[in-house]
Design a protein around this nucleic acid. Structure first.
Lengths: 341, 341
DNA sequence: TCTTAAAGATAATTCGATTTAGTAAATCGA
DNA sequence: TCGATTTACTAAATCGAATTATCTTTAAGA
């Protein structure tokens, strides 16, 4: 392990190029309203290159009191399959503007969350994104109000903080609409009974679509399980077909549920999509692309939400103005066509 | 958006408690070899609480030239399902020691990687973890040698840098051994032809186990596809059964391959596990736990690797000693028993 | 030729901590 | 009682940059 010998400072550059430290700073930062001759400028740049000088972010941060770091506080997001897309989205946006991302995983313990936010605060992060996995209503820690912040995949009761969530209703609507447009008239939905906005809203979208297309509204077109796993899909499919044996299309709460539906349909000797069309939600590639036939589904725009969140915090952080409206966004869930419809 | 009014500094605390700034520092950091009376100590703490003082990490960083931040540079890790576990592991370890994690996603562009590392360097990170998804041999950027660093899920040709990888060979061996111990004698493997250590080593483990258990070594017990997806599993299963129609157990390169194998077996009217046992690799819960029957598989210890990596960088960073041996680890892949064997 | 402005560069201060080198008062040993 | 310790605390330097206030020099204008 080579120990790192002290990195060169601005002073070193100044010495080598025979100018003052101030001048070096002016050159490096292209400070407006200063005039530096081409010759000095070149000399400084040469010295910079020669020494391999890079600025010390700590010193800059101390002086300017901004860190160019964004904090991302997440409940279990990171370990959720594809939750990483949120991180990636936020990070890409941050990077584009010259910012970095600092990560914190709180689990779901509120006191840890508070602690983590205050750690980030003491690190002088310029903004915070609070992300949850599974769309829900949260009571945001007070600390968040001290600093530009955005909620991701969740919102607070009064919408006092900017937030970004997927448009679950529209997604549910469009998924159903696709089935209806393909001519299906007896379409069922398999949902979870968990109390989460995604379940409620996707179902609402489903029902609305049925209504708009004049499908005789039968409440028992929805079957429920108590979570969003394969078993729910398996059981739900059986339930629905016991109610309507001529059902020809299924809208599944998510891709895992669809996975269970596949199993049940196969057992019932129904072919997908010839006998029964199936559409999922979330676009968990690892499932959707590996099922046979590949699953048509609605894409959960995690990357896009991450990106929006980061961009928005940065915007707030950089705006000098005080009281702009709190931005909020619902990102649509685009259809991903594969072979199950 | 409330703008954050300046946060209190150590000086403010000193003023309020009527002592010098030095004393405040001593109290807060519990500096050894200093004597502070209980009274002053209490007064300082009171002022700290009253003002809600938290130290400015930038200032500390500048003064001590350590940031208490670890950098994690990953290729596509974050957006890989469960890649998040690596992040979580590293972060948990870092947190335990009072460190934070800074994230960078390079994609696989080497020049970006270099750039990101130097960004991290200029941020004075105390160590860097370079992580790849999919175990492979890398040529680590020179910059890494300037600072404590660890490779994760990859290694360099000469093993000059510390690294941590899963023990693929052992995993392959143990998976196969399980099948053999259950009495299976005609067991096949479905592998990918991609040139990655995981494929090579898992197969090696498979063959070694067969040899150790005196199963007549038939090279054509392995079927290949050109990637690690379901289709490979589907085709591979058909191939293997066309060679040996009495095959009773399958070791799949990974869980996605197993997913395809399930489909093929179902089509061939074989029951799992009664007629054919199936074991996967990776333990992608979202697949493994949602297949029917649930898939028995080898767990890819991502979390553990992340943790080991972070702990090791920190250890290196904190050791004053120069030339310790470069640590390296192969983490075993524990068996996760479900219902497919 | 003298004044003035612009160009080119710099000295000194600052950000908020840590840390070294002290000082003053209290305590101790003989 | 006097010098030596110990206790309790502080002043000032420092880390590496940004930034403000100044200072020269040179060129232009009258």
């Amino acid at each position: 392990m080579k120990r790192n010998k002290k990195r060169p400072t601005m002073g070193d550059v100044a010495r080598l190029s025979g100018v003052s430290q101030t001048t070096v700073s002016f050159v490096i930062n292209d400070v407006p309203n200063t005039s530096i001759s081409e010759k000095t400028r070149a000399a400084v740049m040469k010295a910079v290159k020669e020494l391999g000088y890079t600025p010390n972010a700590m010193a800059i941060g101390l002086r300017t009191s901004q860190s160019r770091v964004l904090g991302l506080v997440a409940d279990e997001i990171a370990i959720t399959p594809f939750g990483g897309y949120i991180i990636k989205g936020a990070q890409d946006a941050a990077r584009e503007h010259g910012w970095l991302l600092m990560l914190m995983n709180s689990g779901k313990d509120a006191s840890i969350e508070d602690e983590e936010i205050s750690i980030l605060l003491s690190r002088q992060v310029d903004g915070i994104i609070l992300a949850t996995m599974r769309h829900r209503i949260v009571e945001p820690p007070q600390l968040l109000y001290q600093i530009p912040s955005v909620l991701l995949d969740c919102r607070d009761e009064g919408n006092t903080l900017p937030f970004v969530v997927p448009d679950e209703f529209l997604g549910g609507y469009q998924a159903t609409e696709l089935l209806l447009k393909k001519g299906h008239r007896c379409v069922g939905m398999i949902n979870t009974t968990e109390d989460v906005p995604s379940a409620k809203l996707r179902e609402k979208g489903f029902l609305q679509a049925l209504a708009d297309y004049n499908v005789p509204d039968a409440d028992d077109l929805v079957a429920y399980g108590d979570d969003g796993n394969a078993k729910t899909g398996y059981d739900g499919t059986k339930t629905l077909f016991s109610r309507y044996e001529d059902m020809t299309a299924l809208f599944c709460f998510n891709d895992r549920v669809a996975m269970g539906a596949y199993d049940a349909l196969r057992l019932m000797q129904k072919r997908i999509p010839e006998d029964v069309a199936v559409i999922g939600f979330d676009n968990y590639e690892i499932i959707a692309a590996n099922l046979y036939p590949e699953l048509t589904t609605m894409h959960l725009p995690l990357y896009e939400m991450g990106k929006w969140a980061a961009e928005t915090v940065l915007q707030i952080a950089q705006s000098t103005g005080e009281t702009e409206a709190t931005p909020q966004a619902m990102i649509p869930c685009p259809l991903v066509m594969r072979n199950s419809v």
